[in-house]
Design a protein around this nucleic acid. Sequence first.
DNA 1: CAATCTTTGGCAATCGGTTGTCATTCGTTG
DNA 2: CAACGAATGACAACCGATTGCCAAAGATTG
Lengths: 340, 340
Amino acid sequence: MATQAAGTDRPATIHDIAARCGVAASTVSRALSTPYRVNVRTRERIEAAAAALNYRPNIQAKALSSGRTSAVGVLVPDITNPFYFDLIRGTQLQLKAAGYTQLLVDTEESDEVEATTVDQLRKSADGIIVAASRLTDEVLLAAAATTPLVAINRDVPGVPAVIIDTPSATSQALDHLASLGHTRIAYIAGPTTSQSSTRRWAALAGAAEELGVEVRRLGPFAPKTQSGAAAADAAVYSGVTACIAFNDLIAIGMLQRLRERGLRVPEDMSIVGCDDIFGADFCNPPLTTMASPIEQAGRVAVSMLLAQLNALAGGGTRSRSVMPTHLTVRGSTGPAPAKA
Amino acid sequence: MATQAAGTDRPATIHDIAARCGVAASTVSRALSTPYRVNVRTRERIEAAAAALNYRPNIQAKALSSGRTSAVGVLVPDITNPFYFDLIRGTQLQLKAAGYTQLLVDTEESDEVEATTVDQLRKSADGIIVAASRLTDEVLLAAAATTPLVAINRDVPGVPAVIIDTPSATSQALDHLASLGHTRIAYIAGPTTSQSSTRRWAALAGAAEELGVEVRRLGPFAPKTQSGAAAADAAVYSGVTACIAFNDLIAIGMLQRLRERGLRVPEDMSIVGCDDIFGADFCNPPLTTMASPIEQAGRVAVSMLLAQLNALAGGGTRSRSVMPTHLTVRGSTGPAPAKA
DNA sequence: CAATCTTTGGCAATCGGTTGTCATTCGTTG
DNA sequence: CAACGAATGACAACCGATTGCCAAAGATTG
C-alpha cells in the first residue's frame, strides 16, 4: 500500500542522476567508478545527487556490461555437515569484506550436481571455491582452466588449492594410539571419491609400517553420523582396539553405537575423529580428534581466489596453501585393553 | 593455455543460435521461453542448435531485461548455529527445485547488517526469506511492503511468516518439569531482540501461574555455547532446580559448565533445550529439548515466497504457517532433588 | 477464388550500466 | 598571442536477453 512518498517510486538509475546534474550518463558512471577521470566539482555534484536519490547500482546491469558479477560460488558437498559451517563462515566474511556476494550451493555429495553447478556458475560468478570436490582430476583441471577456481582439500596439479594437512595429523594420531599400546588399528574410510580419505590412508599405511603396528582399512562409509553404526560394528568384528575415523561425524556415530552395544570408550575401544567439528568437545566421551583452522582455510581460499581475479595477467600468484593440523586429545582415546 | 578447441571459445548466445538456424534472435528467445509461440519445426531446429552449442542463458542478461533475477536471499543471524543448517538446507533444496538460486547471508546478529542486506537484495533478488529477524516490526513491515518477503520465527501482522510453535512446546516442557516435582524453574532468555524468546517467556509465565510453579527469567544471554557458562552460574545462584534454555546451544554450554562445577545433570539440575539441533542427542547427558521440523520450515517458507512471486495479482495467498513442535525427552531432565 | 483470421517470426526498443572514441575546453608554454 | 597538450565530458555502441508491435505467410471460410 504505502509506497515511498517522494517523487519516483522505482530505484534511481545513473540516468536519473545525470538528468539531475545536467551531465551525461557516462559521466555519472565514470564519476562513480573511475573518480580521477572526472572533475572534482562535477564528481561532488554527482555524488551528492546519488546520495539524495539513494542511488544503488544495479548489480545485474553492472555484471552484464562489465562481465564481472561480483559474486563467488562456494560449493560444499553437504551443508548440514558442521565441518562446513566454519568454512562457509570464513568464506562469507572474507567475501563480504571484499565486496563480493557468496553463492552457496550444496552439491549433495554428487559429482553430477557439482559439475552442473560449476558449469552454471561459470557465467554467473567471477570465481568458484570448491570444497572437497567429488569431481575427477581432469574435470576439475578443465574447470580451473576456464574459470578462476580454488579447491579446498583437493590436490590436483595446476589447480590452486587450500589443503588442510590432515595426513600429517593422522600420523600424529597413530603415534598417539601406538604410545597407548594399541597394535591393531582400523582406518574408517570415507567416500572413495574423497581425496582426503585416500591421502590419509596412504599416510597412515606408511606410518604404520614404521611403527610396526597393524592398520587395516574398513569402509568406505558415508560421512554421516548414521554410518557410524555400521563402522562401529565392522570395527568390533575386525578385532581392532582403536579406530581412526574419516571424520568426526562417523566417529560420533561410532561412539553412540558402541554405547548401545555396551562397549566402553576408551576402555574397550579408542576412537579418533577428524575435523574437530561442533560437538566433538561435548559428545560422550569428548572426542580425540584432528583439529584444523577451518574458518581460516575458508578465508585463505577467498584470498587466493581474489588474487587470481585481480592479477589475471599478474603472473605468479601463490597457488597452494597448506593449513596446519594438530591432534587434540580428549576422552575417547585411552590405553589398549589387556590382551584377551 | 589450452582453451576449448572447437570454434568459438566463449559461451554461446541466442545470436549464435539465431545465426546458425537462420532466424532472428527474438525467435530463439521465444522458442526457448514461450515454445507455443513458435512453429514446432523451427523450435526443434533451435533446440538442436542450442544443444549443439551447449547454450546456457546468461542469467544477468535475463535478469536485466525481464526484471526477474531468479534468486532469493536467505538471511540468517548466524551461519554457524546448527539450528540454521537444516533451515538452510530446506530452503536450498526447495529453491533449487524451483530453479532459483539461493543467496545466503549471515547477518551476524546485527540489525544494521540485516537492514543493509535487505536493502541491497531488493534489486538483486526476487524475494527474501529472513530467519529470526532482528529488525523492528516497522522496518520489517516496510520491507515486506516493498519486496516479496517471508519471515521465519517472526510474527508481525502483515508480514507472511512461518512460525515454529515453540511457545506451546515450552508449556509442554514446563508440564514435564512440574510433573517431575520441580517448583523453582528458570527461563534462560535469549537476545532481547528475539521475538521467539519473548513469546516463549510469555507462554511460560502464563503456564507457570496455572501450574502453581515459580518461573523466573534470567538473562538475556547470547545464543552461543559460550554463554552457557554464565547462564549455568546464574541458574545455580538463583537456586532453581531446572532450567528451560532459549536454545540448545546455551543448554549444551550449561551442561558443560555444570559438569565443570561438579554438579550432576539431571540429579542436581534439570536442563531443557530448544530446537533439537545437531549434537543435542549425543551430548552428555543427551538433551531433553523441543524439537521441530526445521528443514520443513525452510521449505514451507520457500513455497510461501514462490506463491507470492507467482500470484502477484492472485490475491489471497496463505500468509502464515505454524509448524508444530514437540518435547523430546532425553537424559538431561529428571526428578527434582529432595529439598535441602 | 477472394476475404478474413491466425500463426509465425522479424525489427527494434529496452533493461542499466560500461567503455572506447572523439570533440571541446582549459591551462600552459614558447 | 598562437600553439600544443592534458583534462574533461558527451556520444554511441555494446553486454545478452525480453517483449511489444507489425508484416508476411498460411489456413479457414463463404
